[in-house]
Amino acid sequence: MVENRPWLTVLAHAVLIVGLVVIAFPVWITFVASTHDSATMLRPPVPLLPGGHMFENYAKVLSEGFAQASRTPLWRVLANSLIMALGVSLGKIAISLIAAYAIVYFRFPLRMTAFWMIFITLMLPIEVRIVPTYDVVANFGMLNSYSGLIVPLIASATATFLFRQFFLSVPDELTEAARVDGAGPTRFFVDILLPMSRTSIAALFVIQFIYGWNQYLWPLLVTTEESFYTVIMTLTRQANVVDGVPQWNLIMTVGMLAMLPPVLVVVLMQRQFVRGLVETEK
């Protein structure tokens, strides 16, 4: 039996409040900075209350871009990041589902060898693979394109392993019943396995969407045209201007807008995300 001690309840709430303040304070400062003009942000102290330039700053970056670093409107940059994040997340899920299905339900030579070769790629950091991957992408003429941003990142050993483990937990009786009812491999996969995997798919989608949205190194290598820049690249270029003063109010404006899509994905899919991580009975 858990004892009811009021001072423990107060302490727990105090710790939670402190943690909330520590996490939320940088976000608040970012929002406040996005509502001031450039001159205010260049002189101390940093303001803690919102200013009166919010709509001006947001309208400027969304429609005009930046005179110092980029003239590409932010809506185009956000669209590039959204296309990349959706392409990476959906591609990873699709390929991992098919690979795991083939490994579990089909018998072919070197089946387990193929699985372990996929799994071993987890030991290779992206820095090891990035030079040969770039060479392949360049030889195929995929630089400065959405395919070059997405295709090299859609293979996922982690997602393949997770789906394989889930498929192994599906009762053999269900497979036999589907076979008796005349369901072929495609119908069994589409009508039975996919609906059963929806919580796992939702959890992986959230994780992989954020992974694709936050990509910086790979887009930096394969894109040289501003029309294909992502929002993370744009943020970095704005902060590292040469022979000029960074427009911190606009940088913080972009930062606030860059946070919105991942936050919306997490909020809208929170229930499915949690169930996909903790649910044990499928």
Score class of each variant (00 low, 15 high):
207 I>L: 14
219 P>V: 00
251 I>Y: 06
216 Y>E: 02
177 A>R: 05
193 L>G: 06
226 E>S: 08
227 S>K: 12
219 P>Q: 00
222 V>G: 07
221 L>C: 07
234 T>E: 07
182 G>C: 05
192 I>Q: 06
170 V>R: 09
195 P>M: 00
221 L>D: 03
229 Y>S: 01
183 A>G: 05
250 L>H: 11
190 V>H: 03
242 V>G: 08
214 N>A: 14
181 D>T: 06
213 W>A: 09
241 V>S: 09
192 I>K: 08
238 Q>I: 06
244 G>S: 15
204 L>V: 04
188 F>E: 00
226 E>C: 00
259 M>H: 05
231 V>P: 00
208 Q>F: 14
260 L>P: 06
170 V>T: 02
190 V>Y: 07
185 P>L: 14
227 S>M: 08
244 G>L: 09
231 V>W: 04
259 M>T: 14
178 A>Q: 06
252 M>I: 01
250 L>R: 12
243 D>V: 05
224 T>R: 13
170 V>D: 00
229 Y>K: 02
195 P>L: 00
205 F>Y: 06
206 V>G: 06
187 R>T: 09
215 Q>F: 11
243 D>I: 02
212 G>M: 10
247 Q>T: 01
194 L>F: 10
209 F>D: 06
223 T>K: 00
224 T>N: 12
231 V>E: 03
214 N>S: 15
185 P>R: 15
215 Q>L: 14
252 M>P: 06
174 L>R: 09
215 Q>M: 13
197 S>D: 08
188 F>M: 03
182 G>M: 08
202 A>R: 01
223 T>V: 05
206 V>W: 10
206 V>Y: 09
213 W>C: 10
171 P>D: 01
204 L>K: 05
173 E>P: 15
186 T>Q: 06
177 A>V: 07
225 E>C: 01
193 L>R: 14
217 L>K: 03
259 M>N: 12
175 T>A: 13
241 V>H: 07
218 W>L: 02
254 V>C: 08
226 E>V: 01
228 F>D: 01
214 N>M: 13
222 V>E: 03
170 V>W: 08
252 M>K: 04
257 L>E: 07
193 L>F: 11
230 T>Q: 05
198 R>Y: 07
186 T>Y: 13
181 D>V: 07
190 V>W: 10
